[in-house]
Design a protein around this nucleic acid. Structure first.
Length: 637
DNA sequence: TTTCAGTCAATAAA
DNA sequence: TTTATTGACTGAAA
């Protein structure tokens, strides 16, 4: 029994083992299945990602294809445009050929028609463009010459209107082709301001032209660029690259380009230059300006004027006509003398003989008004109830203005009239500047005698005239004074004499043993303190010291500036101005690289690079003067 | 307030 | 007399 029981027990145990093994096997299978499921899920996710990726790639490809198609379309358009341009240039070439032929033919005709050489007849006639209020404006985009713009008299006087126009066209065409090389871009006129100019080439050509025609920088600057001689010299000697120029800085170069592209500009400027020098013989005496001629006529007719009631419209007109007749005769005798060369009182905007005649009428009116209401400048402005006779001829806008301003005379100020006026301040300042330059009248004298302002205020007023509408009433008064001053030839003469007296006075007051530079800085010299401080002229030692300081610290702190000023016995403003100017001129002459950022050393600084010392020497704005002196200067900062 | 572009005008140089 | 240089100034921008 016992044996039987043992046998069953052992069997049960075996079965139990089997069962355990089965359970273990099942667990393993379960684990494997779980792994497989996880693996499958992972594969599924990856597949999903792949699908998304494929979709993205598909989208990108579609976009790329669209882009390429767009580019293709653009390129096609470009090709079409270029083909069209090519076509137009073919026409241009044809025109050029035709013009050359025409020019050759015209030249032959001119040669046949022209009388033997005569110095007077060869004198270039001043084109009307130069008689605008601002000469340099003519250098703008407007076509300077066309048959329709020529006054009738001019058209008649031409040996052949066809040949005249053709010649101008040829000149224009020729100058265009010459100046083409100055441009990098196409010649779309609307985008002229955006065209990139080769400033170096442009200035070189201008210099050559000026030299060739013996035109001075002063005349060129004054009439073409509206800049002073010094600035012209600077621009011509060191033209900045086009890209570095501001819009304002580009303006002179655009004017130069226009100047070069118009042969008549050169001829006109040559004529002006020659007359200013007195080279070209005048029928009347060289000193005598057209205003003086008119003045003489007026003087001769003064008795007539006195005999006539100045307030009588008919009488005034008769006198005016009589004087006018004589003036016309005088104009004829003087054979197209450029009355605008004298800018004292002549209206530079005169465009035709008819306008010139009107200007004479205005002068006569001024004269009559002056007789009735002598003025003393600067005087408070006011209104009088004087009215002028109605002008028999169509009145120009300026004529209306003229009469309106004439109502503003000596006395007290009337705001309503001031507000009702609308003067061209740019034109007025331009004419005043021209009058001052041509008559050698200083801004100081003009400011003191006419406007009651200092020289600096005059300079500001003349160089940056505000538009009339932007001016306050007080500001408008200055322009009315200038306008009135321009009306009367006596004013210019008076001021010229005043200026001459002032110069003589200054000369007589000048001590024979004038002190050298820096005399004003000598402390304790009370007598000198009353004298106007002379211009500071830095000595070589001072410049060396400042340059050395610049090399150490291009942007010195206020403390450093104080120390430098103290060590060199200079004003702090002088030192800081020197640094501003030096940096500016380093930049100007270096051209390609900025001086530095405010925190770091300059790439142009001799301290930052071994190469820079060479560069610095080459472009040092003051080294030219000091001829590369390598003085060892120690500056204790 | 500082810096800068642009300019003037006094002065020097050619 | 003309041209070049340069200290000083201005308004704008940062």
């Amino acid at each position: 029994m016992m044996r039987m029981m043992k046998m069953f027990a052992s069997r049960d145990i075996r079965d139990l083992h089997h069962l355990e093994e089965e359970v273990q096997r099942l667990q393993e299978v379960q684990e494997r299945s779980a792994n497989h499921i996880a693996l499958l899920q992972e594969v599924q996710e990856r597949s999903a990602n792949h699908i998304a990726l494929l979709k993205e790639v598909q989208e990108r490809s579609a976009n790329h294809i669209a882009l390429l198609q767009q580019q293709l379309a653009n390129k096609t358009q470009d090709i079409e445009r270029l083909q069209a341009k090519l076509q137009s240039q073919q026409d241009y070439e044809k025109m050029k050929t035709e013009l050359r032929t025409l020019r050759a033919r015209t030249q032959t005709e001119e040669d046949a028609l022209s009388p033997p050489s005569d110095s007077t007849e060869n004198d270039p006639v001043i084109p009307r463009e130069f008689r605008t209020p601002e000469f340099h404006h003519f250098c703008g985009k407007e076509e300077p010459w066309s048959e329709s713009k020529l006054p009738v008299e001019n058209r008649r006087s031409s040996s052949s209107s066809l040949s005249s126009v053709s010649l101008h066209m040829c000149v224009k065409e020729e100058s265009m082709s010459e100046s083409d090389g100055l441009l990098y871009e196409d010649e779309d006129e609307d985008e002229e301001d955006e065209e990139e100019l080769d400033t170096s080439r442009l200035t070189r050509r201008v210099r050559e032209t000026l030299q060739k025609h013996s035109i001075g920088q002063r005349v060129f600057g004054h009439f073409v660029l509206g800049l002073s001689q010094g600035t012209v010299s600077d621009i011509l000697a060191r033209p900045k690259p086009w890209r570095t120029l501001t819009r304002r800085g580009r303006e002179p170069f655009l004017r130069m380009k226009t100047f070069l592209s118009d042969q008549t500009s050169v001829q006109t400027l040559t004529g002006i230059q020659e007359r200013l020098r007195g080279i070209v013989p005048w029928v009347r005496s060289p000193e005598m300006s057209s205003d003086q001629v008119i003045r003489n006529i007026l003087d001769q007719n003064h008795s007539k004027l006195m005999d006539v009631d100045s307030r009588s419209q008919r009488g005034s007109e008769d006198v005016i006509r009589s004087i006018l007749h004589q003036a016309k005769h005088e104009m004829h005798v003087t054979s197209e003398t450029p009355e605008e060369v004298h800018y004292g009182t002549q209206n530079p905007s005169v465009q035709s003989p008819a306008d010139f005649v009107q200007s004479i009428i205005r002068k006569v009116k001024c004269e009559m008004d002056e007789d009735t209401h002598p003025s003393a400048s600067p005087a408070p402005l006011s209104i009088i109830t004087h009215s002028f006779p109605t002008h028999p001829e169509p009145r120009t806008q300026e004529c209306v203005q003229q009469e309106c301003v004439q109502q503003v005379c000596v006395g007290s100020c009337e705001d309503e009239i001031l507000e009702s006026l609308d003067l061209d301040t740019v034109s007025i300042t331009q004419r005043v500047k021209e009058a001052l330059v041509v008559n050698n009248i200083g801004q100081r004298v003009f400011g003191e005698e006419v406007l009651g302002l200092t020289q600096s205020s005059v300079s500001e007023l003349l160089s940056r005239p505000k538009p009339w509408t932007k001016l306050s009433l007080k500001g408008k008064e200055n322009f009315i004074r200038m306008h009135r001053w321009l009306q009367d030839p006596h004013n210019v003469q008076r001021l010229t004499k005043t200026d001459q007296r002032a110069r003589l006075k200054r000369d007589s007051q000048r001590p024979s043993d004038a002190p050298g530079h820096g005399f004003c800085l000598s402390a304790g010299s009370g007598a000198f303190e009353a004298i106007k401080r002379p211009r500071v002229v830095l000595s070589a030692h001072e410049k060396d010291s400042l340059r050395a300081a610049y090399q150490l610290e291009p942007y010195p702190s206020p403390y450093t500036i104080e120390r430098l000023a103290s060590q060199l016995a200079l004003q702090t403003s002088t030192v800081s101005n020197w640094f501003y100017n030096y940096r500016s001129r380093i930049r100007r002459d270096g051209l390609t690289e900025p001086v530095q950022t405010r925190t770091g050393l300059s790439p142009a600084s001799p301290v930052s690079s071994g190469l820079v010392s060479v560069k610095q020497e080459a472009c040092d704005p003051e080294m030219e003067e000091d001829t590369h002196r390598h003085t060892c200067v120690t500056v204790r900062l």
